[in-house]
Amino acid sequence: MSKITINQLHMALYEANSIMLTVHVRPDGDAIGSMVAFYEALIAQGKTVHMVVDDIIPERYSFLSYIDQIKDVAYYEANHVSVDMLMVLDASTYERIGRVGALFSAPIFNIDHHISNSEFADHLYLKPEFAATGEIITDLCEQWNWPITESMANALYMAIATDCGFFKFSNTTANTLKMASLCVAAGARPNVISETIEAVSAARLELTKQVMQTIAFYKDNRVATIELSPEVMAILGDDTDGFVDIIRNVDTVDVAILLKGESPNRTRISLRSKGTDVNAIANHFGGGGHIRAAGCTIETSIDEAKSRLLEVIK
């Protein structure tokens, strides 16, 4: 692995003729927005570009341009393509791209902002001070004088906004706001994006009422948990956005924990905080992320996973 500069990244992209873009499994707004925007930017530079994700693309992102160009792994297993570069966006470990890595023998490049990045790629462009990979892509376009179209602007604004809680989280910096401003100037429509991303169905609200019954507080109300049982997860799939914010916004809470039961003996954890380094907590269980937002998976039940987490949190 070698960390590369912005100039080295630019040269590598200049020399590559065909590029495969991918992001992490369970793709979020930052991953999808960054990918479709970078796809459009690279196409404009005359590159042959493909997009693949080893997962289902959430319906809420269907308003973005070029979303229909994203293929699943099965497509490329049946239709092999040769590329000069596998560009991984917004993924901090090789495992997070699922089966994609095994499909291509090209050098792996990684553009990411996670402080927990495992440095798996052959060439890494890492900006942990940036709130989102979308912020990085916007910055690259600005520095390289690559035009940001209206469709790119919408995708990049969504990428940035969703990864910093629509500019409410502590990872929001002056540069975050500057990059978002560039997107708005290029045609992004913040109201349309927020209304689309945050829209809630009546059925979802009914389910939220049920989930809120699982809320519990610990350690003098500094730690709060909320649970999604395997039965609830079967209904939600990976559409779990917003649940952790219910408890994160409680005035006394520093650490908010969302426990997602993938099965009776496997629990995925999302951690958010106002002060505690939750990346360190996630690392304890083989996960990672950011200081204020991280995640991990514990191979046990929700109750046991909660118990183990509370033992680690001081």
Rank of each mutant, 00 (worst) to 15 (best):
R96L: 15
V100F: 08
G101L: 11
A102H: 12
L103T: 02
P107Q: 11
I108N: 07
F109D: 00
F109E: 02
N110C: 13
H114F: 08
H114T: 05
S116Y: 07
S116E: 07
S116V: 10
N117W: 08
S118N: 03
S118G: 00
S118R: 08
F120M: 12
F120E: 10
D122W: 00
L124R: 00
L124Q: 09
L124G: 00
Y125D: 06
L126Y: 09
P128V: 04
E129M: 12
E129Y: 11
F130Y: 14
F130E: 04
F130C: 12
A132M: 02
E135K: 05
E135F: 05
I136K: 08
I137P: 09
I137M: 09
D139T: 13
E142R: 14
Q143H: 14
N145M: 10
S151Q: 13
M152I: 10
A155C: 04
A155M: 02
L156R: 08
M158P: 01
I160D: 01
A161C: 03
T162Y: 09
D163C: 04
C164Y: 01
C164R: 01
F166Q: 03
F167P: 05
K168R: 15
S170N: 12
N171S: 12
T173N: 05
N175R: 13
T176H: 09
T176G: 11
K178Y: 15
S181M: 06
L182Q: 12
C183K: 05
A185S: 14
A185H: 12
A186S: 15
I193E: 06
S194E: 14
E195C: 05
E195T: 09
I197C: 07
A202Y: 15
A203P: 00
A203E: 15
A203S: 14
E206C: 13
L207G: 06
L207I: 09
Q210R: 11
M212F: 09
Q213E: 15
